[in-house]
Computed example of a mutant assay.
Amino acid sequence: MEKKFGPALNPPLGRRYDLDWLRVIAFIILIFYHVGMFFNYWGWHIKNNEQSNLIQVPMYFTGRWRMSLLFMISGAGVYFALGSRSPGSFLRERFVRIFIPLLFGMLVIVPPQIYLERLTQGETYSYAEFYRSVFEFQPYPKGSFSWHHLWYLVYIFFYSLAGLPLLLFIRRNIRMTSKWAVFFQKPLALILIPVAWHVGGSALLGHRFPTTNDLIHDWNQHFHYFTLFVSGFVLCTQPAFWEILKKQRRLLLIVWLVLLPVVYYYYFSEREVTGLENIFNDLVKSTMTWCILLSFFGYAYVYLQFTNRFLRYANEAVYPFYILHQTVIICLAYPLINLPLHFWLKFGYLCVGTFGVCLVLYEFVIRRVSILGLLFGLKPKKRRKVEDQGIPAISSES
Rank of each mutant, 00 (worst) to 15 (best):
T237F: 10
Q238T: 13
Q238L: 06
Q238D: 10
P239E: 01
A240S: 10
A240F: 05
A240W: 04
F241N: 00
E243G: 05
I244P: 06
K246I: 12
K247E: 00
K247M: 02
K247F: 02
Q248A: 07
Q248G: 01
R249M: 03
R249K: 08
R250T: 14
L252N: 03
L252E: 03
L253Q: 07
I254E: 14
V255D: 08
V255N: 07
W256Q: 10
W256F: 12
W256D: 08
W256I: 07
W256H: 11
W256E: 04
V258A: 09
V258I: 12
V258D: 03
L260E: 08
V262M: 14
V262H: 13
V263W: 05
V263R: 04
Y264D: 03
Y266S: 06
Y267E: 13
Y267P: 10
S269Q: 15
E270I: 13
T274N: 15
G275V: 06
L276M: 14
N278F: 15
N278L: 15
I279A: 13
I279T: 10
I279D: 10
F280E: 06
N281V: 13
K285M: 08
K285I: 11
K285F: 07
T287I: 07
T287F: 09
T287C: 09
T287D: 06
W290G: 11
C291M: 10
C291T: 07
C291E: 05
I292S: 01
L293R: 09
L294A: 08
Y299E: 04
A300T: 05
L304S: 01
L304D: 05
Q305I: 01
Q305R: 12
F306H: 08
F306M: 07
F306L: 07
F306P: 04
R309F: 14
F310V: 10
L311M: 08
R312M: 12
A314G: 06
A314F: 04
A314P: 06
E316Q: 15
A317E: 05
A317H: 06
V318G: 07
V318R: 08
Y319I: 05
F321S: 03
Y322A: 05
I323R: 09
I323H: 05
I323D: 10
L324I: 03
H325D: 09
I330H: 09
C331M: 12
L332M: 05
A333E: 07
A333S: 07
A333Y: 01
Y334P: 00
Y334S: 01
Y334R: 02
Y334C: 00
Y334V: 00
P335M: 00
L339R: 15
P340K: 08
P340T: 02
L341G: 03
L341S: 06
L341W: 04
H342N: 15
H342L: 15
F347I: 07
L350H: 08
L350M: 08
C351Y: 15
C351L: 15
G353A: 05
G356V: 12
C358M: 02
C358H: 04
V360K: 11
L361P: 05
L361V: 11
L361I: 11
L361E: 04
Y362P: 01
Y362S: 02
Y362H: 03
F364I: 11
R367M: 03
R368Q: 11
R368L: 12
V369E: 13
V369N: 11
S370T: 15
S370D: 15
L372R: 02
